[in-house]
Write a protein that binds this DNA or RNA. Structure first.
Lengths: 257, 257
DNA sequence: TGATGTGGTTGACGTGGATCAACGGCGCGC
DNA sequence: GCGCGCCGTTGATCCACGTCAACCACATCA
């Protein structure tokens, strides 16, 4: 969940070297292109996106990018850092609905009601590209590739949510954690980081909320994995020693709620 | 989850009378317009949708509209009847990800990977409007209102999924069932049916899968509601006697996983 | 260097919902 | 009109995970 190496990570960016460029916001110049909204667009189309990103915005750790109820005006592409999104119930219960990392899009929930329906909170000091929604719709009427990619991004979010529903609805605690770790690992890999070793940006409580478990249960599951030699856990630092076993945990073991 | 009164329902369509019209597929002639994709479009825009719906398709109870892995070519608007969508794990576990009724859109999951990622099964004999996806993208580049509505429909799906995640991740059994019943009631109301009295189209097992519970737990929760005079349950026939109590169950009661 | 706070681990115990099992109601085909 | 199968209900028992509580690791700050 690291972007520009803001913390002492073991991972290394192996594919796309990151050179922070505060002046240029153009997607065509962005090294996250492959992971982000403009993925798969032609050079010609890409050049038309020059004014899609209105501005960059920096968000400090623990601060909100937006809150439930805020009027919806833009979606956000994560340029650096990471976020969580959550929904709150009146009685204070929190459900984390997702963790987002560089290149991923935030704010799609706001389109339906023209106001945001969840909170987005930075898990570390982060930076986002602000994509004005009116402009995005306008441009995606003209640029076919943009339209197509935008639809894919939304659809991917729906598919992802179904995966989480599967996890919450029919997996036991250790399966959920295994799925979570494998998912993170895969997303780190896509960003050129190590698949096996990374730092978590969220607390046990946030992981628990996401997985529908209490923090103690998350902690115990980590300990169990550690005992069994599947992962090495040191606070937020994770090393996956046996990804095969993790995958097996995911597949087998019937039962559970 | 009834559309055209195909089964002996107590509900009555009070707003929009339904006259089945097998010949005309045009959205502009459809009485479900208010609930469906073309909602909120101008008359002028509406007329441009004449060829959006390629064909109607009838699906018998228990049959699949599409399956996970099927190539994605179209999305579907439910014209009559109802569906469930589900995801299957290799080991056979099933997670129902949603129940859809008239006017609702199916198939959005397929856009991201150009193939469907879940199964859609008719809960009763049903009919859908087939909306070719290529044509939809084309037309929504030209018709602003269509583009806007389509985005809203996708976003609404994301918000809905977050609600289900909340439910699965942090509510106890009776809260889940209360949320489920209130949600159904509200959707029936939007369709001109009684908010208080309706027939379920799905089994206890399907409800359980959706809510992350076993069928016995669903059954017991129904019985408890019945004992307490909150609902009257007779197999699939439901009468909500005290919607206020249902809402209270939803709000209060901290704890749970 | 010690005080304070936040996050993580671990243990003992309680409980909500799963599991297993028996039975009843209802629709369907013969 | 009867037998069969599916669906739903209910009871007894079990267990995975929640709850409560103590303690530890580490960071921040005075």
């Amino acid at each position: 969940m690291n972007g520009q190496g803001s913390e002492s990570d073991v991972q290394m960016k192996v594919t796309v070297p990151v050179t922070v460029n505060g002046l240029k916001s153009a997607c065509s110049q962005c090294n996250l292109l492959e992971l982000c909204l403009p993925f798969g667009m032609s050079e010609h189309e890409l050049n038309r996106l020059d004014d899609l990103v209105g501005a960059r915005r920096k968000i400090k750790r623990q601060q909100n990018l937006y809150r439930a109820g805020d009027p919806f005006e833009a979606i956000y592409a994560i340029r650096a850092g990471s976020f969580k999104t959550d929904v709150l119930l009146e009685d204070g219960r929190e459900q984390v609905t997702g963790f987002q990392m560089t290149g991923e899009i935030l704010g799609l929930d706001g389109i339906s009601a023209e106001s945001h329906s969840c909170n987005a909170v930075a898990l570390e000091d982060s930076e986002v590209c602000v994509i004005g929604y009116a402009r995005l719709e306008e441009l995606s009427r003209e640029v076919e590739g943009l339209q197509h990619q935008f639809h894919k991004v939304m659809s991917r979010e729906i598919v992802r949510d179904h995966g989480v529903m599967m996890l919450l609805g029919s997996m036991r605690a250790e399966e959920r954690l295994a799925a979570f770790l494998l998912n993170l690992s895969q997303r780190f890999t896509a960003r050129g980081f190590s698949a096996a070793e990374f730092n978590l940006r969220m607390t046990r409580e946030e992981i628990g909320s996401y997985l529908g478990l209490k923090l103690e249960t998350v902690s115990r599951a980590f300990s169990r994995f550690q005992e069994e030699g599947i992962v090495a856990v040191q606070q937020k630092h994770i090393r996956i020693l046996d990804p095969g076993r993790l995958k097996k945990i995911l597949q087998h073991q019937a039962g559970g709620r």
